[in-house]
Design a protein around this nucleic acid. Structure first.
Lengths: 123, 123, 123, 123
DNA sequence: GTGGTCTAGACCACC
DNA sequence: GTGGTCTAGACCACA
């Protein structure tokens, strides 16, 4: 995984893990990688991973079993999905529409882009 | 103008001015407010405005006439619009589509949201 | 005449006038344009031209006849030429040579550039 | 390091660092001094160094690793060298040649000066 | 009047 | 520890 610059790394890790959960790659009660393990994998400071895990735990997406590790919560998928969806509707969409109007991007353009993107996705 | 927190002020000023240009509120060769003037208007430090102006000048959106002030470049609208559009297509859209798929938001849903937003816009 | 940005306008005007003198376009005791006249020609604030003229007068390149105008000094060509030459040898050349070494530009390269430049000059 | 007056400090810092890279004193992926550190070394304000680093980052000469520091880019030497060379050919040389013609300095004179300078360099 | 630079000092997010 | 941002205030060159 490569990180974009301009956004904090710990946020990108959170997003990465949420995506794993949303896509079902990680199932409820699966054990997630240990802090140190993931830190090595991502080439990142363990403190940074720790911060991401703490945040995810606060949100209830993962839980900790002392001395054992972190695990995916049973309701993580629904919880994460609804949170994302709410954020999507209240933050992403309004901004999206404003930008579209500003740069002259029509809803038709957007549909084309969507189908094009789906093709690229499946190929 | 009020500033969101979490993003730097000078970036929001840049965006604000670009929007002025995009919407045609400021025409090419119009003089933009002086650094000090805008600083007072926005209630920020002149250095902050200065930074925004320098950035806009680097992008070619405005130009400076020594001892007189800053002016909107003749090609500022097209330049800004195409820059925004490119960024929109390469950064915003892919992320958007991924999120849509992840949270189960269809292109039809998006069209509904669009028409709803447009109504709210005109009313 | 178009001005570069990054250098002060009054300096460029000084240089411009010195060049007229060096090339013989303006001869000793010729009258130079009035401050206002040149200011209009160059599309510049009269104060700026005035500043250039004052500087040239201090250097002895031009002299003023009250109520009449400015004139090229009799020794202006030699004076200017020797000043330029001194500056060239003490400031320009050392810097030039350092840059050449830094970017790997040989004296042979420079000769080629010279002949090429001369050709472009005559054509 | 002592700064010339008449040019901005942050530009001289940029040049200083580019020279370090060009001469190979600083190798790709070497860590450059921290902002605060260099500021103390040079006896200037950290903001000034920060400005230089931002500029160098924009040019791609250095990159930032969040929370760690700045590092020399892998292609910094070539990139910097070619940029300098381009600037040399398009800005320095034409002006040089014009001055030479104006003050009557021949290419032969210049070769002599070059060899003399080289001797002074090695001794 | 204009912009450009610099300092001093503070606060913050991040690693 | 690192860089990033912002403020306040000053000084300067320039038009």
């Amino acid at each position: 995984m490569r990180f974009e610059q301009g956004r904090s790394i710990y946020e990108q890790i959170v997003e990465y893990i949420e995506n794993r959960v949303l896509t079902g790659a990680w199932q409820p009660d699966d054990r997630v990688p240990s802090v140190r393990e993931l830190a090595v994998d991502l080439g990142v400071n363990p403190n940074t991973v720790q911060r991401s895990y703490s945040l995810l735990q606060d949100e209830g997406a993962i839980y900790n079993q002392r001395g054992v590790g972190y695990f995916v919560s049973s309701d993580a998928p629904e919880r994460t999905r609804s949170a994302r969806r709410r954020q999507f509707e209240t933050e992403t969409l309004p901004r999206l529409f404003e930008t579209m109007e500003m740069v002259g991007y029509s809803i038709a353009d957007l549909e084309h882009a969507w189908t094009a993107w789906q093709k690229g996705r499946t190929s």
